[in-house]
Design a protein around this nucleic acid. Sequence first.
DNA 1: GAATTACCGATTATTGATAATTGATAATAG
DNA 2: CTATTATCAATTATCAATAATCGGTAATTC
Lengths: 218, 218
Amino acid sequence: MVVKKQINKRQSTREYVKEALMGRILDGLYAPGERLIELQIAQELETSQGPVREALRDLEALGLVESQQYRGTRVREITEQEIEDSYQVRSVLEQLAAELAAPKLKDKTELLEKQLQLSQQAASRRDLKRYAHHDMEFHRLIVEAAGNELLAELWNSVVLESRFIATIKRRIGEEELEHLADAHEPILEAIRAGNGVKAGRLARELINTFHSAKQQGK
Amino acid sequence: MVVKKQINKRQSTREYVKEALMGRILDGLYAPGERLIELQIAQELETSQGPVREALRDLEALGLVESQQYRGTRVREITEQEIEDSYQVRSVLEQLAAELAAPKLKDKTELLEKQLQLSQQAASRRDLKRYAHHDMEFHRLIVEAAGNELLAELWNSVVLESRFIATIKRRIGEEELEHLADAHEPILEAIRAGNGVKAGRLARELINTFHSAKQQGK
DNA sequence: GAATTACCGATTATTGATAATTGATAATAG
DNA sequence: CTATTATCAATTATCAATAATCGGTAATTC
């Protein structure tokens, strides 16, 4: 209760609940299909039903849970189809992002280089978690440089789903990591050259390749 | 109250409120920037604060309103930048949709033809509203044929924003309508030929052209 | 007279209680 | 023995009341 009140200074209870639940779901503490009971959670987090409901609705909008009238909310089960779908969408979002970002990042590739380097190091160490982190940051830098807020927002939600998936199923073989990390270099090259269209095409191909790799690994 | 109860058979109060508010916003009954006061709306729709809050959160997720802690919710003002952003995103979503849909629609273009025809007729009659409707249906057919649910979902929310914009500002000159309607034909051709990549490229270009046209009109 | 503080009305956020709905099980009828 | 209808516990949906916070204005200080 004390902790909650402190947090409450800036954050609403709803947000506090949302983040608590999001963490648990993404860390796999709640299994897919598991039911999230409003009053139970409210009791656990020392709050009431209202904020919990609102938090659950937020999570529903993010695609982490799904709910039916009077039948409650459960952690979403993700099908193969949905994974496929999300990669297709992500690939075109990344394409657009790279196109828009290339001219802007042309002479400011230091951060990109750093993330790429870190991801390559993680790959050679077979450190999957750290690899995923730096890989994502690499892409995030591009998405944010694109300067399109809607794009960034949609990308975030689609990528969140990827992270969700990653928690549930480990789909990347460790041996593929290094190859994957290196595959980012041509994108960086194209950005350095200020060639947005090329960078975009490469980015899209990368995601698709990444995805196929995952499909194989199944 | 009676009406509400009837609707309530299948629809929750929250959804009833959501749709009522959505209609008013899209029809321009609430001006951008206008405040939506929870208890006031609750009273008006003969319900209580809770469902109204939840409906407002739904609308926030859809991008129709925005809210700040303890400062209430207001109809979102849309900037030029956001319009630009949404068209960029929409163009790549349409590209992907057309790519995926082309092989599937190859021999089933009747519905597409019909919508195209209706939109052309509306264009020649300078019937902006009906044109917009059939134009949207044309694109919706493609998006749905693509068979990617996430894509359809994102497209819907992005297009909703377009409709929102359209209500606020009339940005298409009537004289451009016919040209615009006709510009859909090459897409249909490419789909008939089963050429997804071409259909995709054309679809993307179409949106961008459409957008430029709008920009000029300002 | 400018800046700060204290208060007020309006509104949002949260709570606790109540009503409605569900799924499951038991009772009943055919 | 099967199918239908009641009943029950669990849970969600809604409501009404209270607490917290905001913006603005008046009082106070320097």
